[in-house]
Nucleic acid binder design. Structure first.
Length: 526
DNA sequence: CTGGGGAGGGGGCCC
DNA sequence: CGGGCCCCCTCCCCA
């Protein structure tokens, strides 16, 4: 007995989930684009990915080997078995695909491309050298791929999937908890860099050279700025012209050089807090209702609106709306950008336009040139330098912004007073930082959800939540945290220490906030 | 069902 | 830029 079209339907479901970013547990960075996918699918299709995905959740591909548009076709092929893009039939595209397929060790796709080129009278010799193992036509399993499948294929059909969330309930129900948990831990553990390097994340800060634990120290000096601004590091350090980046020179991991460290034992164990379920678990029932939320995998925890204001973003993530910009993640949204509005869940970050499908977003993203992005960067820098003040701030009281620009304050001046609130700061740097808190214009956008921040550090910290980076692990229970402070706070759970005491009733608390909450109970009229 | 406590998580801000 | 602290939101548990 055999279920007709079982594999086809399965693949179709997976592709639909990919289009929504649902259960995607790996991000592939290609030049200026991010692609989300499923590790299992990648591993089943590519020896290259198979060796990487068990340990890495962020894979940076060599842009000389594969471009975003080519990788999009590659990914489509992986998920559909077809090359659907119309330009894929050109010899140039086929050659690029062949290079990418060889690089990624997608033997079936490579063989398919070779046959196509051969059929067109081309010789695919240029790329054969990269993967000798794949230069022979038969695939490892002996399967001979069919002819190129063009856009008429019904499998590749992202546009219509957004409204079908209900149809995938069953298959997702059982996958969600383990995959999310594992991803969060994996992301916490290490992040793949440049295809061959792992940055271990530890509370001690080992291997941590940017705010998110990505080891950026191996950047090739010859790397172009274009790559820099859209590389993972630029995702994390969006506005810094000096931020280091990743050297996109991954080597297909056919040798031991690419062998990543095995996951640490502590993270393999399912960490559970004593007596109580960790928060990470509670998202499961929400998804069981068929909701495709914006925080799956911990990669997409959109806070929803751009400006939350103080307290407005509290608890963000759990109730965050679906972001949906799952395929391409660009930089610097336009003012007023609000991701995931209405049905246009696929949002282009640079211009803020929303699209109902990843395909349409992809097509739109391709219209952005690097020049446009450069211009945005320059404008962004300029704005950060001089344009961020409150509109209601009296220009007379801030004649030259010298303090906010960090321009040599008078050393004889006794204090550095904020021109808005008269707060005294100890130096010009502190003053500048403080004055930013009065800005309405927040110069640091999250490259994933578009949320804006006044401080780069806050944005970087926020990005950690998107990437699921939790470098700080409790040695007692294995629970992991994004902040060391949280871990220290958590450790009181194990130690039983309750340093915060209510002066009214003598009640003791492990956390100050809970004491404050308790005090409100005392002071509330009721 | 409700209120209080415990705790995870996010953002703002200062050092 | 990271650490630390504060405040807030939220959820879960339990009496």
């Amino acid at each position: 007995m055999e279920q007709q079209n079982h594999s086809k339907q399965l693949l179709l479901q997976l592709n639909q989930q990919r289009a929504k970013g649902y259960l995607c547990d790996v991000i592939i960075v290609v030049e200026n684009a991010l692609f989300r996918a499923h590790k299992n699918v990648l591993a089943a299709s590519s020896v290259y990915f198979k060796s990487l995905v068990p340990h890495d959740n962020l894979i940076n591909l060599d842009t000389e080997m594969v471009s975003p548009s080519i990788f999009r076709q590659v990914l489509d092929f992986i998920y559909t078995g077809c090359l659907s893009s119309s330009d894929s039939v050109s010899d140039h595209s086929i050659s690029s695909l062949l290079i990418a397929a060889s690089y990624l060790q997608l033997t079936e796709l490579a063989a398919l491309c070779r046959r196509k080129l051969k059929h067109n009278g081309q010789t695919p010799s240029s790329s054969n050298k990269m993967t000798p193992s794949s230069s022979t036509s038969p695939t490892p399993n002996g399967h001979t791929p069919g002819p190129l499948c063009l856009s008429s294929t019904p499998l590749h059909n992202h546009q219509h999937h957004n409204n079908h969330s209900g149809s995938k309930k069953g298959s997702q129900r059982n996958q969600r908890p383990s995959q999310e948990g594992r991803l969060r831990e994996d992301l916490s553990e290490k992040v793949f860099i440049s295809g061959s390097r792992c940055a271990s994340l530890s509370p001690s800060g080992e291997g941590r050279s940017n705010g998110l634990g990505l080891d950026l120290s191996k950047r090739s000096p010859s790397e172009s700025t274009a790559t820099e601004e859209v590389s993972p590091s630029s995702l994390l350090q969006s506005s810094s012209p000096h931020s280091s980046s990743l050297s996109p020179t991954p080597t297909p991991p056919t040798t031991s050089s690419a062998k990543p460290e095995p996951p640490k034992t502590s993270t393999d164990l399912q960490p559970r807090a004593p007596r109580k379920r960790p928060r990470g678990d509670k998202v499961t029932p929400e998804l069981e209702d068929g909701e495709v939320d914006g925080e799956e995998n911990g990669l997409d925890q959109s806070e929803g609106s751009g400006h939350s204001g103080r307290g407005g973003g509290g608890g963000g993530g759990r109730k965050g709306r679906r972001n949906g910009n799952t395929n391409y993640i660009y930089r610097q949204p336009q003012p007023g950008f609000e991701p995931g509005v209405g049905d246009n869940l696929y949002v282009c970050i640079p211009c803020g336009k929303g699209f109902p499908s990843s395909e349409q977003l992809n097509a739109h993203v391709d219209t952005h040139t690097h020049d446009q992005l450069y211009l945005k960067d320059e404008e962004e820098e300029e704005e950060e330098e001089c344009g961020g003040y409150l509109k209601d701030k009296d220009p007379d009281t801030c004649p030259d912004d010298s303090a906010s620009k960090g321009m040599k304050p008078d050393p004889e001046e006794p204090g550095h007073l904020c021109t808005v609130c008269s707060k005294s700061c100890k130096d010009a740097t502190s003053l500048r930082q403080h004055e930013k808190s009065h800005w309405l214009n927040r110069p640091f956008p999250c490259n994933i959800c578009g949320k804006l921040f006044t401080q780069r550090g806050t944005m970087t910290r926020h990005m950690r939540s998107h990437l699921g980076l939790k470098p700080f692990a409790c040695e007692e229970c294995g629970m992991r945290f994004t902040r060391q402070y949280r871990l220290a706070e958590h450790m009181r759970v194990h130690s039983g220490e309750k340093p915060y005491e209510c002066q009214l009733c003598g009640g003791k608390f492990t956390q100050q906030r809970n004491l404050l909450s308790h005090m409100r109970m005392h002071t509330s009229p009721s």
